[in-house]
Structures are given as C-alpha cells and as structure tokens.
C-alpha cells in the first residue's frame, strides 16, 4: 500500500525534475557521465540508489515496473526495491519482461530483446571505466575530455601478454558512439553485445558516485578488442539450464546437497517463459 505521508515517488518534485534533466543531458551525449545532486534514499548507498533515483524520477501512474537483481525477480534486493517503490507509488509491477515499461536491473540485461516502449535502468557501483587505471576523478575527467584511453588499452595488452587472455570479467568497458569509453555496470560480457544498436533506451544511475549516463536507442556500442583478438564472452559451451534446457542463456552455476554441479538460467523470468511455452 502506498504511504500517503510521502510525495508520489518519494522525492520532492524539484529533485525529480533535476534528475530528469541530468538524464536528458546524458541521452544527448551518449556514454558521457553527467554529474547530479544525488539524493539520499531510505535504501543504502551502494544498493542501487542511482537506479532507484532514475526510476523514481521517471515513473508515472501508468507505468508497469519490473525489478531484477542478478537476473532474478525474486532476489531479496529486487523484492526490497520493488517494495520501496510500492510504498511511495502505486504502480503495477510485473515479472514478465515484455509487460514492463520500466525495468530496473542490477548486473544483467534480460535475455529477451527490449523494445522502444521500454527503458532499462541499470544500477551502477563504479561508473568510471578508467578507475581501474587511475584513482583520481580529477584526472579521469581530463582523460575523457582528451579521449585519452591509452592506459586501458595497455591494460588489455598486458593481460594478453601475461595470461594469453583478456582477463576482465564483468564491467567490460565499451566505446559508445566512437567517443566516450563507458562502464556498462557489472553486467557479464555475455550481455555487452545487447547494448549495441538496441531498440530501447538504456539509462545508468550511480547514486553514491552521483553520475547518470545513457545509451540512446540504435547507438553504436563496441566492446574493447584488438583487430586480431576478438572480444570474447563467457563460455557455457556444452552446458544447459537444468530447468528449461536453454543453451543460449547466461547460466548460474550451483551445487545441490550432494555437491553435484548444475546450471540454471540467471534470467528467471525468461526461464519460466520457456518452461511455460514447452508445457503449452
């Protein structure tokens, strides 16, 4: 039930408008991190407050909301965020990806491609792709301005020399529209190609770091790779989901009581849909 002691969508209208303005600027400069006056929320900083502020500023009574964490609608954090948004709005929520107009996510992009009537909002812990090579914000800001991305390329090269592989796991950096290097948030490399020329709007919110950035529809998003060493996703060859049998999804590795290893779709809503389809 909505708590009438608080404004619709918690924040005061002025704050929500300010966040929408930052989001508009982000859309206008794809991949560029727009700073904003991040507000404190009743949910912990580092727990998705950037994403939540975007959701709160964009959501209206007509919207249908889906929240996922690690691909799952049922995860404690996803449930908790949905519960909070439910307290200060009374929008409908769903677990079905195709039904949602606004989807907030942590660490995954749904398996089903999103459409132009949907917005995917990412929760971002560290928005700065250059932070792994340079600790100082003052310096990384200049590096972006000068499009000086050499240290990241060097890191990629060093990893090839040392391990014969690019060893970046998630948060794999990409170039947006040929101009800004961007951190796609801690999604697996498996999801990076879904950012490229997508039909939907992708918005990224980092509450603690006070940054918003965006990938507008049909934007070119290229994961970093050398001409002779192509970009490589996580490999699930020969493995499939134990529930729905999918072989083309991102899988979670698990162990049962006997210590036997098995795999299951990380996108729980997709997994359910496949099972529903199969059972007719």
């Amino acid at each position: 039930m909505m708590n009438r002691n608080y404004n619709f969508a918690f924040l005061d209208e002025g704050s929500k408008r300010e966040i929408r303005r930052a989001a508009l600027k982000a859309v206008a400069i794809p991949g560029y991190q727009v700073s904003f006056g991040s507000r404190e929320l009743p949910i912990g900083r580092g727990w998705g407050t950037g994403g939540i502020q975007l959701t709160l500023s964009l959501i209206g009574p007509e919207d249908v909301l889906k929240v996922i964490d690690q691909g799952s609608d049922e995860s404690v954090n996803a449930v908790n965020i949905k519960k909070f948004i439910g307290l200060c709005t009374d929008v409908e929520t769903t677990t079905k990806t195709s039904e949602a107009t606004v989807i907030q996510t942590r660490h995954r992009i749904p398996e089903v491609p999103l459409t132009n009537r949907q917005i995917l909002i990412f929760q971002v812990p560290i928005p700065e792709p250059l932070r792994i090579v340079e600790a100082r914000e003052e310096v990384t800001k200049k590096m972006h301005a000068e499009k000086d991305y050499a240290p990241i390329w060097l890191q990629l090269y060093e990893s090839l020399v040392k391990y014969n592989k690019v060893t970046i796991a998630s948060e794999y950096p990409c170039m947006v529209s040929g101009r800004y290097m961007m951190n796609p948030s801690p999604i697996p490399k498996f999801d990076n190609p879904k950012l490229h020329r997508a039909e939907c709007l992708y918005l990224f919110g980092a509450g603690r770091e006070k940054k918003i950035y965006a990938i507008p529809p049909y934007t070119e998003v290229i994961s970093l790779a050398f001409d002779d060493i192509p970009f490589e996703k996580e490999n699930f060859k020969g493995k499939k989901c134990r529930l729905c049998g999918s072989e083309n999804t991102y899988l979670d590795e698990m162990f049962d009581q006997h210590g036997d290893r098995f795999y299951q779709c990380s996108d729980t809503s997709y997994c359910q849909e496949v099972r529903d389809y199969v059972s007719g």
Partner: peptide
C-alpha cells in the same frame, strides 16, 4: 548482496 553473475564471470 548476491554477486552470482559477476562471480560467475570472474570464475
């Protein structure tokens, strides 16, 4: 919080 996806990627 769960980090299943990123840890899988790390693995």
């Amino acid at each position: 919080l769960p980090h299943y996806v990123t840890f899988q990627s790390k693995l």
